[in-house]
Amino acid sequence: MRTQYGYDKSDPLSGAVKVSGVPKIDLERVEVTAHARERLKLMRAQAAVTFDEILLTLKAPLRVRFVPDHGTWLWIGERIAIAGSHTDGSTSIVTILWTTKELWDANPRPSQEG
């Protein structure tokens, strides 16, 4: 995985780095991509991810990291990480990820099911 995608498969968030100047999210200035909506729909069906969990992750993340390869921020909660771009006070959520390999293994994307 590290050779092909640049990260350690045992840590799905390993490409994210700690940086200063973490953006604050204004919930009235958030857009959600179609891909992120589809991920949320799947994650709700697989593991009962709730809208409250999304809000908690955005407003009170356990940590926030930056992914230089994609130019995105990761707001990281207990089970989920929300990836998005932040420009001029607006946030665009591009995807939602599981935070651990175990969660990915238990809840694969349909194309990854064996």
Rank of each mutant, 00 (worst) to 15 (best):
W73S: 10
A47H: 10
G6V: 04
Q46F: 01
V19I: 07
K41F: 01
W104G: 09
L97F: 01
A81E: 01
I93Y: 07
A16K: 06
T72E: 06
A34K: 14
P23H: 07
A83Y: 00
D88F: 09
L55P: 03
P108Q: 06
N107L: 03
R109E: 14
I76M: 07
I25E: 04
I25R: 09
L55Q: 13
H86Y: 10
G21W: 00
A34Y: 00
L74F: 04
S20Y: 06
I76V: 11
I25D: 05
A45K: 15
P61A: 04
P61S: 08
D88K: 12
A83V: 04
P23Y: 04
L56Y: 10
V32T: 13
A106I: 00
H86T: 14
R37S: 12
R79Y: 08
E31V: 02
T99F: 01
L58P: 09
H86C: 11
G21H: 05
T87A: 15
D52I: 02
P110T: 04
H35N: 12
I54T: 12
M1H: 11
A36K: 05
P23F: 06
V22T: 13
R44L: 02
V19A: 05
A45W: 03
R39F: 00
K18P: 02
E31R: 10
A60T: 14
G114A: 10
I96R: 06
G6W: 04
H86K: 01
H70V: 09
M1K: 07
G21N: 09
S90P: 08
T91F: 10
P68A: 08
E102Q: 15
Y7I: 00
G77S: 12
V32I: 15
A48P: 06
L97Q: 05
R44D: 07
A81S: 10
W75P: 08
E78G: 12
S10R: 11
R79E: 14
E28K: 13
P108E: 07
A34W: 00
E31S: 15
A106G: 09
V64Q: 13
K9W: 01
D88I: 02
F51V: 14
T50P: 05
P23W: 02
Y5L: 12
V64P: 06
L55I: 14
T91P: 11
T3C: 05
A60L: 11
Q46E: 14
A60Y: 06
N107E: 11
T91L: 12
L74P: 00
K18Q: 05
E102S: 15
L55R: 08
R39G: 04
M43C: 03
A16I: 02
V22K: 13
D11P: 08
L58V: 09
R79C: 09
E38M: 08
P108M: 06
M1Q: 09
